[in-house]
Design a protein around this nucleic acid. Sequence first.
DNA 1: TATTGTTATACTCTATAACTATA
DNA 2: TATAGTTATAGAGTATAACAATA
Lengths: 185, 185
Amino acid sequence: MSEPDWPAGPSVGFTLSQLGFATSRRFGQIVGTLGLEPRHFALLRAVREADGQPQQAVAERLGIPASTMVSLVDQLEARSLLERRPHPADRRTRLLHLTGRGEAVLEEATALGAQWERAICAGLSAGERAQLLSLLRRVAANIGLADGELPDRGTGQRPEPVPGPAGSRAAGPGRAGNGPGGAGR
Amino acid sequence: MSEPDWPAGPSVGFTLSQLGFATSRRFGQIVGTLGLEPRHFALLRAVREADGQPQQAVAERLGIPASTMVSLVDQLEARSLLERRPHPADRRTRLLHLTGRGEAVLEEATALGAQWERAICAGLSAGERAQLLSLLRRVAANIGLADGELPDRGTGQRPEPVPGPAGSRAAGPGRAGNGPGGAGR
DNA sequence: TATTGTTATACTCTATAACTATA
DNA sequence: TATAGTTATAGAGTATAACAATA
């Protein structure tokens, strides 16, 4: 079997895992300041993006199971950040709308996200940051992560086991984790 | 409030979250090929690093609660990848040792990790990869992540809420997630 | 008969607390 | 009395399946 042709030292994969985890965890704490979890933030953004979508459409877009979506919307509606309105024609569906307060909180959260972004990139010149993003984009392409794509939640989806060869043996659980939920784009 | 002074586009924070998540998830699938979860891999590596440590010492080093450690070791011992041996002087403590099979599997997993690393960095020159690592290291320093440091598991630890200002309101849950568990350094 | 949203249920994971045997 | 390891237990979180209203 071929030896790694890279110089020794920390791997990109490990570093990315570490950073990605720390980054999103910290971001979770930050939006927690507003009483939000990252997925609440993601949900609010999805709703704002296209106000008045059916609840399920948003759930599908975010890759959240319908039942989970219910409690998520419940929580945000209880805080008057968004509201369910009846569909004019179909009495089964509920259309999601951002409230004024929801917009305000979303803006606050977005500002905190921007602030966090600046903290992350402190000391990097604009050029360095651009290059970092460029390199990350190439890595993303390597691992088959489309540009704006959301990594599919553990909803089944089963990509190819392993790119190259393998050492056989049975397949294990293969666990997942919590989604990124980081600051927006 | 200050506007982001960065050019528009995807943020580093979001991209890192996304990549870190995708990376570790994929790595989980890869080692799953060997019937291992990432934390099994981490455990095996920690044991190999210093063969014959007490079980709790390893647990502490990995930030795993003692009770979780038990089942983890149980699983690996059931597969004869490592074994508990009595401490010569203290009959309470169990010393962890890698078996021959454990070493073999660990090597297989390491090889898969190296292969995954190559896939991640495909198309990057050695210089580009070095620069990527350098930039990531600077980002890691920015967010207060020591070099080889393991991000502390949700074991309590409560860092400062937010670096800069804030929009008040009560503190939310602030959730965590699964650790990196990516390929080794 | 199919679909939207909801509720109920069952499962997984993890950590805390209780317990045993040693020290 | 304190500690290593274990077992039992309880909580959070999440997905699957059953359900009611409507199409």
